[in-house]
Amino acid sequence: MGESDTKGEANGKELTASASYSRIKVTQVSGPTGGESGTLASTDVNWEPPPCWYEPLFTPEQMKNFAEADGSGQVSIRQGWIGSGLWTDHFRDEKDAANYFGTPSTVKGYKNYNLGKKGYFWHGVAPDVTAIDDTTLCSRLMFWQDAGEIPDDPNAPTAETLAEYAYDKVKVPETEIELKPAVRSTVNLPTWVWLDKGTFKEVKVRAELPGTGLWAETTAKPVALHLDPGTKDAETYPASGNCEINEDGSIGTPYTKGDADKTPPCGIRYLRASNGDPYQLKASITWQISWEGAGGANGDLPDGTFETTQDMNVQEIQSINR
């Protein structure tokens, strides 16, 4: 089953119009489906998905049912009409309507909901209206578009719009890294860190906007592990704390007997005991994001990260057998 944040569709006789909900349907195509998971944080602090766009909402028949049954809802992102009168006046009886935020300021009315025509009434959608600084953005009154056509508007949806919308729908696994020693580390002795191959796999989600032919698949590929020991009194291997993913999909190398005096390709060496208050080891996976979509469109989006935290108890003793 795909995820559908859908309002404005027929549900028996009930129809609603809300600019806060999108009809974009998101389905996970591949990647882990069980266990704990979370969403990615963009490595580009200045990047944001589109604040709003237009979507098809009502067929002529659905518009008629909505307007004449109740007619209370948003006719644009920032403009609501309460009661049937305004809706029937504009969409049935050809009366012009005022648009207080978008352009043009007055919109020509429709005759009998365009019944008999093939197409949709479109409206603006904004996941968070308060995040839109420009009050005119995506603020056209609900408007008609013939079937099979995308509006000629700078805020019309594209395959890239869907790819960007799907960015925070990508769910990546929350998995603890493997450690040796696993229970308690020792001052000045390296702790080996690794992830077995297959622990992290590509995650792909597909976003589709009904009634448009638009789709996009957004893929997250794990590319690196970053270690933050949780204290300045520690060293990481490599020094950057960035452990690259091996060709077979693993990260680091598992500890084996006899490796005690070796330097791990991925690991930590604590220089001071935790003294009963464990250090908070942060392990952050970097995911490379790419997408492809309708019409052969494709591109890249900013890398994303997902971080987990583990307690690290570090002891200080004179000698240890490993």
Rank of each mutant, 00 (worst) to 15 (best):
L271S: 02
V75F: 03
T175W: 01
T253N: 04
N275D: 10
V26P: 02
P238V: 04
G249L: 03
I150C: 03
G109P: 06
G148W: 07
G8H: 07
L281V: 10
Q62M: 14
E68Y: 07
K201H: 02
K13P: 08
P210C: 05
T218R: 02
T305K: 03
A156E: 13
G276S: 11
K204A: 14
D168P: 07
D134M: 05
V187L: 01
E48D: 08
L301M: 10
T309A: 06
I251Y: 00
V314C: 00
A19H: 05
S76W: 03
S240I: 04
K108M: 12
L189C: 08
C243D: 15
T6H: 05
L162E: 06
L225D: 00
A97W: 06
V203K: 02
K197G: 01
A17G: 02
P302E: 12
V45E: 12
E160K: 15
A17R: 01
I245K: 01
K232I: 09
P154A: 15
H90T: 03
R140P: 07
V45R: 10
G12M: 12
V183S: 06
Q74Y: 12
E307F: 06
P210F: 06
R269T: 11
N46F: 09
D93G: 10
Q74K: 15
P50W: 04
I285S: 00
G124L: 05
A260D: 04
P50Y: 00
K25W: 05
I245E: 11
D300I: 05
W144H: 14
A273Q: 14
V125F: 11
L40W: 11
S105V: 10
T218E: 12
Y165M: 11
N112H: 09
V107R: 03
G276Y: 00
R78C: 00
G35V: 13
G230F: 08
P264S: 09
T218K: 03
C52L: 06
V172E: 09
G213W: 15
G198K: 09
E149T: 15
T212E: 09
N298M: 10
A10G: 12
A273P: 14
I77V: 13
D228E: 11
P229D: 07
D152W: 12
I24C: 13
P50K: 11
V107K: 13
R184H: 06
K95Y: 07
K232W: 13
K118C: 04
L15A: 08
G109N: 05
K171F: 01
F200Y: 13
E307A: 02
L141W: 02
G2H: 09
G296I: 15
I289T: 14
Y100V: 10
A67R: 06
T212F: 08
P49H: 01
K13F: 12
Q145S: 08
L301Y: 14
F200S: 08
E176L: 14
K169G: 03
R78N: 15
T88P: 03
K7F: 12
A216F: 02
S250M: 10
N242L: 13
Y255W: 15
D70L: 01
Y165P: 06
P32I: 08
A147H: 04
P157Q: 07
A131S: 14
E36T: 14
K180R: 07
V170H: 00
Y255G: 02
P60R: 13
H90G: 12
G299N: 09
S18G: 08
A156T: 06
